[in-house]
Amino acid sequence: MDFQPVLKLSEIIENKACLTVFEGREILVGVTNKGYFAIENKCSHQGKPLTGGRIRHGHISCPVHGVRFNLETGAAVGKLTNKPIKIYRARANEDWLEVCEISA
């Protein structure tokens, strides 16, 4: 799999998740003090979008029930679910944030 550009870096603000599309699926991308991230825009608890979820301590909180997901691993924190969300590799390349599937 190859990296594909998905968003201009100039549109990214630290600890804010930006909605974009990769391979026809909605994803959230952004940057924290731990680096760039790209995750699927779907909570593994009840399937709602994570759009608008606030980012603290390298985790995004689902805006519906507050399930938190580690942006580096996709792992869920808390009692509501232990199912991770899908994550992608993310990197900066010149002016663009690029995303790539993680090969199995």
Binding site: R54, S61, P63, H65, G66, G78, K79, L80
Partner: peptide
């Protein structure tokens, strides 16, 4: 209704 130790909500939604 809400899961700890912290989070945010525009509205609290019972799971």
């Amino acid at each position: 209704v809400a899961e700890g130790p912290y989070g945010f909500a525009d509205r609290f939604v019972c799971p």
